[in-house]
Write a protein that binds this DNA or RNA. Structure first.
Lengths: 234, 234
DNA sequence: ACAAAAGTGTTGGTCGTACACCCATGC
DNA sequence: GCATGGGTGTACGACCAACACTTTTGT
C-alpha cells in the first residue's frame, strides 16, 4: 500500500500512474479505435488501449506521445487532448494504478506501421476490452462527436486536401449518421472551417462533374461556433 | 525521485497525487472562487485552491469531497465534475506532484462556514495564486460558462426557487455579460430547463407586479441542447 | 393617479435542413 | 445525348435578440 514517507518534501500518498491513448481514425468508412491485444494476465487476450508509465522527466502528454511512437508506431497524431483521469481502486487487480487517458486523432490517409498484436476496431463493434478501457473509449467518441459540431476538429480526421464527398463520408462515419454534402459545405464554409483550393478532382470512370478540392483553413483546434450544430436527422 | 520497485505488481513509476477543487459560486452579484491563504513556504501568503492528498481507500472524487468538508466546511456542492490533470515536473518546487482538479458549484443561497484563512474571490479580480492554480481556475470558469449555454448546469448556482430577475442576475454574473430577463425566460422555458411554481414573490417597497417563482426542472446535469446558446450581445 | 417592476406580443435576422434545379464530365 | 455525380438557389422552420406594449402591484 503506497504511503507517504516522513522524509518526503510533500507528505501525501503516491500511486503508480499510467497514461492511455484512445486513438481514433476513420478506416474504410468506419470510425475505429486502435487496440492492442494483451498477451499476459490479467485480461489475457483481451483488447487494451496503448499506453504505459510516466518517466520522471516526462509530462503526461510527452509520455503518451512516446508510448504511441514506440509501441504502435503511431507518429502522425494530428490532435491530442486530455480526456479524464480514472481512480477506481481496483481498476487494475494487481495494484492501485491511476490512469489518465488522452484522445488522439489520426487522419484517414495515414497508415501507421502497426505491430502484429495491434489493430483498428470499429467503435460500433467493439470487442470486450481490458480493465476500464471501455469507459475511456466511450468518452473519447462522445468528445469527438460533440467537438465536430462546434470546433474545426475535423481537420485531424481528414487528409490535407479532399473533396466534399470525401469529407461527407468522413463526418458521417465519425458521427454515426448520414449527412448531406450540400449543407455540410455551407455550414463549414460559412464558419470558415474549410475553404476551396484551386484544384479540382478528376471524375471517376462513370463520369460526372469534377469535384472542387477543399482544405481546412486551420490545422490547430479552434472553437468555431460556441453554439453550433450538425444535428442528427429527424 | 520516484522509481518503481521490482517487487511492485505493476512496474511503473509512482508519484504523489493531489486533488484540488475550483469551487465557484455567485456571491453578492459576482462570480467567485473559494481560495485559501497559504501560511507556509512555498508560495507563503499566496492564495491557493483547497485540496490535498488521496488516501489509498479513496477515489479522486471522494478525496476532494472529503477535503472540502474537512478544511473549508463546504458540504453543499450542488455539482462536481473533473476538470483536468496537470503534470508539469516542477509545478510544485518541492517534489513532482501530479494534480487533478475538480470544478465544484455552490448555490448562491448557501453560506458555508469558512475558516479564517479562507475567502471568496471575484474571478475578475483574482490575486496572484500559488503553484499553477491560476490555470485551473481559468479552465473552470471557461467550462462553467460554456455549459451554461447548452446544459442545465445553472441549477447548481441557483437556490431551489427564484424569480426570473434573480436568475438573470446569477447568469449575468456567471457569464460576465448582461442578459435580458425576457429572452432568458423564453430560452430556458422552451428547453424545459426551468418551469414555474405555484408561488409568487412579494414586490419590494417601491411596488411593482409580483414576480412568478420558478424552479429548475432537474437538479442533475443534463445536456439540454447540443447546439445552444445565450450569445454574448453584439 | 403614477411610478415601478414583471410579463407578453411582435418583428426581424441568422442559421440549418430539405429539395428542386442547374452544371460539367465520360462514354 | 444521356447517365452520373457535383454544385447552386429557394423555401421553410426553429431559434433568439430587440423592443414596444400590457399587467399588477405599492404609495
Amino acid at each position: 500500500m503506497p504511503v507517504a514517507k516522513k522524509s518526503d518534501p510533500v507528505n501525501i500518498p503516491s500511486y503508480p500512474h499510467e497514461v492511455l491513448a484512445v486513438v481514433l481514425s476513420v478506416r474504410d468508412g468506419n470510425l475505429c479505435v486502435l487496440l492492442w491485444r494483451r498477451g499476459q494476465s490479467p485480461f489475457r487476450y483481451r483488447w487494451a488501449l496503448p499506453g504505459g508509465g510516466v518517466q520522471p522527466t516526462e509530462r503526461l502528454r510527452e509520455a503518451i506521445t512516446g508510448h504511441l511512437a514506440a509501441k504502435v508506431d503511431v507518429r502522425d497524431v494530428a490532435h491530442l487532448e486530455q480526456l479524464a483521469t480514472h481512480s477506481a481502486i481496483d481498476r487494475d487487480p494487481r495494484a492501485r494504478v491511476l490512469a489518465t487517458a488522452y484522445l488522439g486523432l489520426v487522419p484517414s490517409d495515414v497508415q501507421p506501421n502497426l505491430p502484429a498484436d495491434t489493430a483498428w476496431h470499429r467503435v460500433d463493434e467493439l470487442p470486450r476490452t481490458a480493465f476500464d478501457h471501455h469507459y475511456f473509449i466511450d468518452a473519447a467518441v462522445g468528445r469527438l462527436r460533440a467537438k465536430l459540431s462546434y470546433t474545426n476538429i475535423g481537420f485531424a480526421l481528414a487528409p490535407a486536401e479532399f473533396t466534399i464527398a470525401e469529407l461527407r463520408d468522413l463526418f458521417s462515419a465519425a458521427l454515426g449518421y448520414e449527412l448531406g454534402a450540400t449543407n455540410l459545405t455551407r455550414v463549414l464554409t460559412r464558419r470558415q472551417v474549410i475553404g476551396p483550393t484551386e484544384r479540382t478532382a478528376r471524375p471517376g470512370q462513370s463520369g460526372g462533374r469534377p469535384a472542387a478540392v477543399y482544405k481546412f483553413v486551420a490545422r490547430e483546434l479552434t472553437v468555431t461556433d460556441p453554439f453550433a450544430v450538425l444535428r442528427p436527422p429527424r
